[in-house]
Amino acid sequence: MGDSDAIRLAPRPAPGALLCPRIDTGAIFSMSGHTFGKDDLVVISPVFARPGEENVVYRVVEVHRVNLDAAPVSGGHPVRAPKDMFEPAPETTAAAEQPDGTHPASGNAVTLWAGSVVTVAGPRWTGPAGQLYVVLRTSGDKVWLVKLGGDNGRYWRGVHRSFCALVDPSLITMSPGDSVAGRRRVTSGG
Rank of each mutant, 00 (worst) to 15 (best):
T93S: 07
E97M: 13
S116F: 05
G130V: 11
P128Q: 12
V118I: 15
G107A: 15
G101F: 07
T138V: 15
A96I: 04
T92K: 11
R137C: 13
D84T: 13
T119H: 02
P88R: 06
V110N: 00
T102V: 08
N108I: 15
T92G: 05
L132E: 01
P99Y: 06
T102W: 09
Q131F: 12
P82G: 11
A94Y: 09
G140N: 02
G101H: 06
Q131C: 07
V134N: 00
R124F: 04
V120T: 03
A114G: 06
W113N: 05
A105K: 06
A96H: 03
G101M: 04
D100K: 06
A129R: 15
P88H: 10
P90Q: 00
A114H: 08
T119C: 05
T92P: 00
G115Q: 04
P90W: 01
P82E: 14
F86S: 02
Q98I: 15
G115M: 01
W125F: 09
T93N: 02
L145H: 02
W113F: 09
V118S: 07
P123S: 10
G122K: 11
A114I: 12
K142N: 06
L132I: 01
A114P: 10
G127F: 14
L132Y: 05
V134F: 09
T102P: 00
L132M: 05
P123Y: 10
W144Q: 04
Y133R: 08
W113Q: 03
Y133K: 06
V146A: 05
K147F: 07
R124S: 03
V134T: 07
E87W: 13
T92N: 12
V110I: 09
V135E: 04
R124W: 03
N108Q: 09
W144K: 02
A121I: 11
T92Y: 09
R124D: 03
W125K: 00
A121T: 10
H103F: 14
A109K: 04
Q98Y: 11
H103C: 12
W144S: 10
D141R: 15
W113D: 01
G122P: 03
G130A: 05
R124C: 01
A109S: 02
P104C: 14
L145A: 04
A94R: 14
A96R: 03
W125R: 00
N108M: 11
K147I: 12
G130T: 08
V118T: 08
G122F: 12
A129D: 08
T119N: 01
G101P: 00
V135D: 03
P99K: 01
E97P: 00
E87I: 10
A105Q: 08
E87F: 12
V118G: 04
Y133V: 15
S116M: 08
G101Q: 07
K147Q: 15
V135L: 09
P104K: 12
G101I: 03
T126C: 05
V143W: 01
L112D: 04
G101L: 07
D84G: 10
T138A: 12
D141K: 15
A109Q: 02
E91K: 11
G115K: 02
T102A: 10
T93V: 15
W113L: 12
T111A: 06
V110Y: 00
S116C: 12
